[in-house]
Structures are given as structure tokens and as C-alpha cells.
Design a protein around this nucleic acid. Sequence first.
DNA 1: GTCCAGGGCCTAC
DNA 2: GTAGGCCATGGA
Length: 242
Amino acid sequence: MMPSRKAASSLPLIDLEEFYAVLLGHYGDPMWWPADTPFEMCAGAILTQNTSWKNVERAIAGLKKLNLMTASAIARTAPDVLEQVIKSSGSYRQKARRLRLFAQFVLESYGGRVEQMRGVHVDTLRRELLSIHGIGPETADSILLYACDKPVFVADAYSRRIFGRLGVAPGDTGYGALKSMVEGRLRADAPMYNRLHALLVEFGKQLCRQEPLCSRCFVSSRCRYGLNSLNVKKRVSEDEDE
DNA sequence: GTCCAGGGCCTAC
DNA sequence: GTAGGCCATGGA
């Protein structure tokens, strides 16, 4: 009988709490989402939809330079002007409209102050945000977490990919299902969710990319995908040696 | 030149 | 209800 070549990992797949601790230990406290005001965080959440942060930074700098980084300023700015200022963020006509609709919402419901949204129950506020055209689940949760300090999980593309590979949740888990699963397993702690999302993005950018760098990854021995990937490479190199 | 990035809306089936 | 197309820029 041939001995199995499958590398026997003595440890089980990593769980959520432990993965968070490992990420925190590896990357340190991320102190994420650079923004001077809660409104700027919300604007960034809208502008970054399907867009790299580099392109968003230019748009944010443009808005701040023209003193447009408030709900009242954006609401009274002509659409074509707003479009030109945020052009670098891509989909600029859609996003200009979304920014204006969000600004109008903040003005009408919260006197133009995002800070006042913090006093509202998370479920109520989430429903209100989702009713705004252009604010979907991920953007709403980013606003709830980063601008309103609510303990919610932002189940973005990075987290779906990472948790799918780790074996924490199937890769085709939908947004709501993944969000519920994570929130059901972790304590309701806003700063923790803030760090977790930031760490997932960092991990997703550096190692767990679309083409993952499993050979350099510090959790590959506790990851379903990583174990498969490394075993395949091991088998290939063994075959080459023969 | 092609692909992708801290999504969401709309249309067709 | 859901898969596919579209928005659109800038960097790799």
C-alpha cells in the first residue's frame, strides 16, 4: 500500500475568532478608513463602489479643496460640477447622483449631521440607508460601521473570497447570509468589526488575492484552499524530482 | 490592450 | 429570483 502523500495537518481549519486574532497579531491595529469627518466616511463609501481607493482619494481631495465635503454643500452643488470633481472615481455620473441623494437624506432627516444618525437603532438606520437609491447592502453597512459606530460586519468581496477559501463559509454564500453568519459568531463590538474588515482588506490585497499567494501565506496550513494549493505544488515538485 | 478595483441598478428571462 | 449588462476612471 502506497503511503499517502497528503500532508497531514495536526490542526483543524481556523475559526473566525482565531483568524481575527492571527490577523491582528500579524498586521497590528490597522486604524482604518482615513477621513476627517463622519460625512467624509459616507462619501468615501459611495465613491469607492467597485473602485480602487487610489481613484477615490483624488475625488475626496477635490471635494475638500472646493469645500464640498458636507451634506449641505453637496446638495446645493450643480450636478455637472459635482460630476467633474469626482470624475476620477469612475461611474462619476451615477456616483454624483448617489452623493446628492445621500446628502439630501442627511439634510432632511438628520439636519445635515451624520453624527445624529448614531442615536438611531441599527436596524432602523439600515432600512433608511437601503431606501436611498444607490446605497446597497455593502455601502449601508460601511456607513453603519465606520460613520455610525454600529457593530456590523461588512461582507465585501474580500471577505467572501477569504472566508470561502478558509472554509469558514462556502464561497457562494450571499451577502446577507455571510453577514448573519459572522455577526452570529462574534461579539457585538464595533471597534472589533472595524479592525476585522480593515484586516481582511489588507490580507486580501497582500496575500489572499484573486491569484492567492499561498506559499507566502501565514495561515495556509489552516486553510482549505491553502492546504490544497500547497499539496498540489508539493506533488508537482515531487513528480519533477522523479 | 486587457483586467480589475473596498457595488448597485436595471432589464430580461 | 437571478443572471448578465452597464456604469467609467486609472493603475498594473
